[in-house]
Each structure stands twice: as structure tokens, then as C-alpha cells.
Design a protein around this nucleic acid. Structure first.
Lengths: 202, 202
DNA sequence: AAATCTACTGAACAGTGTTCAATAAAACAA
DNA sequence: TTGTTTTATTGAACACTGTTCAGTAGATTT
């Protein structure tokens, strides 16, 4: 069955080809401004062809959405080598913020753009839940070592995620240009370090 | 010149009429899903008429954007009566979060939807800067009373805004449904109180 | 060689924001 | 009152959007 095999490979290649084109257009123009026609044009196929490989625009988006999470999780996984959980927790925030800075468009796709997210709570968000439980595990470890003993694990985890996301969300939406004289990067890093200082006093 | 006066009033009435219709449709469907045709239909005028009173869809949106800020700032202004700056600071966060909960759509319009915000940094964001300097003033007052002495005022203000916005942004995007067994409201309130606990220890 | 299947096309549909010639009505000038 | 100008409104049109689908060319199978 060499032919069927080749066919399958060709189909996967085309799948990838579309995703590559879509990634470029999505990250260049954002979700709304990226049209199916522009994606098709990018890979020099007709618009209709995309629908042979993907149900709709939202499905293409979701593939990239997951891609972004894999990228982030891979970076965070490196921190598994940090023994002390509090050090790991602090570093995670820094990695997260750095990821948002270096992959602003991915970050938008992953955490801000909401168009197609609505109907994907079951499937598309497993990976997000993975990230959350990863955080929660770290908080628990810290607590076992005596840190944040008086805090509720879940609420405290939610707080930490909110802090980091808040910092990144303001950055990604250019909503923090009102702090004149300081670059976004300075604001984000030093803002986060202020939080770390609070944690250390706890 | 009674006629010109009446004409002006009529024009203002029509302006308001469009905004009323647009507010309803925008808050019902969100920015992208609200079409100019649907707004026109809501007030039983032709789509073209809207362009006699507003430059484009984005301008209508901005009017509502400002409206939301006025609403929020009015609620925050009540806290001027709280003498102690730290108490006022803590309460501000609670008011902000409550505002997001009760006016989710406004919050989206104000802080999350980004479509027409790009080109309005000069005019539309004066009111946002107002809110930021309001926060910064409070932090300064706290510092004068001995609180957060070791923190940089600007970075610390940015942190506080990020915390509160992070909490609200996750809520507004339904991104926090992964904490099963706890309602969004519980998460937001108790997440914020975790932060307050950190501040109090500082 | 004929039949089937597979990948692909491009036209079409219903929607979008926006523009603009036409128009009716109101206000002003004579 | 008449004619002229201004103002407000319309609805058709333009260029775009996501999506569907009949048609088709080419490869695969029978």
C-alpha cells in the first residue's frame, strides 16, 4: 500500500502548508484581518481548497492556538530542573512574560482574541488546563515547604496567573503607554519584580 | 435664532438616538458582530444616515468607550470619602472588579476589544491616563504614610493595575473556567483578597 | 479502457463597512 | 409667494468577508 501512504503524506504536507501560510497571515494581521482568501493567496491555492483540509477559519486558528501553548509549555518545562519550587515559581512568571514579549502575536492568539474560543471549551482547552494545574502544583510544593501557608491554594494560584496575564495583556493591547518615560519591557519586568518582592516578604 | 437652536437640539437628539441603539447592539453582540446595518435597523434609520453623524463604526464605538470610563470613574470617585489611602486603594480594586462583573460588556469595550483603539492614543486615552494617575496618587499617599516604602511608585502602580486587570480580563474572556467547583465571582473576589493579604504583610 | 475517487477550482451567496448620487424637506432670500 | 440654498435621509452600489458547491482534471482502481 505504498500509494495510499504517499497520499496520506501529501495530505499532511498540504495540511502543514496551509498552517504555515495561515500562521504567517494570522500573526501579521491578527485574527479578524486575516481572511481566508489572503491565506489561500499566501500559499497560492484557491480559497475553497482550505475547506478541504479544515472545517472553517476557526479550526485553522485553533491549530495555531495549540501550537502557541506547546511553544510556551516547552519553555516552561525547562524549569523542571530548578529544584526549589519558589525559585521555579518566580522564574515561571519571568519566562511567561518573556514569552509574551517575544511572541506578542501568539500571545494574542492564545489569551486575548476570543472569536472562536467560545465553542471549544472541551477540546481546545485541555492544554490550558494543563498549564493551570502546572502552576497549582508549584504553589502546592511551595506551601509544603512552608511558603504561603495561610493562602488558599486555588485562589492564590488564580492570583498569580492573573498578575502575570494582567501584565502581559496590558502589554499586548498597548494599553500601558500612559507610563511615559518607561518602556513596556521595563514596566513588565519591574512590575513583576515588585510582585516577587511582595511574595518574598510573605 | 430659535430655528438654528432647534436644529442643533435635533441633531444632538439624533446623535443620542444612534448611540442608544449602538450601545444596545454593541453590548448585546460585541464589536465585531454588531453591524452598522443592525444598529441602523435598531433605530429604524437607513445605514447611510449613521455616517451623517459619525465618521465610521469606530467613532461610535469610541463614544461608548468613553461612556464606560465615565461610569467607572464615577463609581471610584465615591471612594474619595475614604480617608486612609491604603483602605481606599484596597477598595478601589474591589470596586473595579465589581464594575467588571456587573458591566462585562462595557469592560470588554473599554479594556479588551482593540479594533479601533489603535489610532486614538491621543484623544481617546486621556481618560485612561486619568485613571492611571488616580491610582498613582493613591500609591504615593500610601507611601507617604509609610506603606510600600521600598517599592518604586510607577512599577508598583503598574503591578496593581495589572493584578486587577488580569483578574477581570480572565473573567471577561471566560478563560478561568478551568478552576472547577468555584464560580468566577468567588475566584475573582478571593483571588483579589489574596493579593490584599500580600499587601497587608508588606 | 472504463469507472471511480480525490484534490482542487472558481463562481456564487449572503453578509460586512462605507460611499455617494438622488431626493425630499426644511430654511432662507427675493 | 416664489425661487434658491441647505440639510437630512435614503437606497443602491462597491469592494470586501466566510463559506458552499457544481464542475473538472487527473490519478487510482477495476
Amino acid at each position: 500500500m505504498g500509494i495510499a501512504e504517499r497520499k496520506l503524506e501529501e495530505k499532511q504536507e498540504m495540511h502543514k502548508r496551509i498552517l504555515d501560510g495561515a500562521r504567517k497571515v494570522f500573526l501579521e494581521k491578527g485574527y479578524e484581518q486575516a481572511s481566508m482568501r489572503s491565506i489561500a493567496q499566501e500559499i497560492r491555492y484557491s480559497p475553497g481548497s482550505l475547506y478541504f483540509y479544515f472545517k472553517d477559519k476557526s479550526e485553522i486558528f485553533h491549530e495555531l492556538h495549540k501550537e502557541g501553548f506547546r511553544l510556551l509549555l516547552n519553555q516552561l518545562k525547562v524549569l523542571d530542573n530548578v529544584g526549589d519550587p519558589f525559585e521555579r515559581l518566580k522564574a515561571s512568571g519571568r519566562v511567561f512574560i518573556q514569552f509574551a514579549q517575544e511572541n506578542k502575536d501568539y500571545y494574542n492568539l492564545m489569551f486575548i482574541v476570543d472569536e472562536p474560543v467560545k465553542d471549544s471549551l472541551s477540546e481546545g482547552f485541555q492544554i490550558a488546563e494543563e498549564a493551570i494545574s502546572y502552576m497549582q502544583e508549584m504553589v502546592k510544593e511551595c506551601q509544603q515547604k512552608g511558603k504561603f501557608r495561610d493562602m488558599d491554594t486555588e485562589y492564590f494560584t488564580f492570583l498569580i496567573i492573573s498578575v502575570v496575564h494582567g501584565i502581559c495583556a496590558l502589554f499586548c493591547k498597548h494599553r500601558n503607554s500612559s507610563f511615559i518615560g518607561k518602556t513596556n519591557e521595563e514596566l513588565m519586568q519591574n512590575g513583576y519584580e515588585s510582585f516577587v518582592a511582595l511574595l518574598e516578604k510573605s
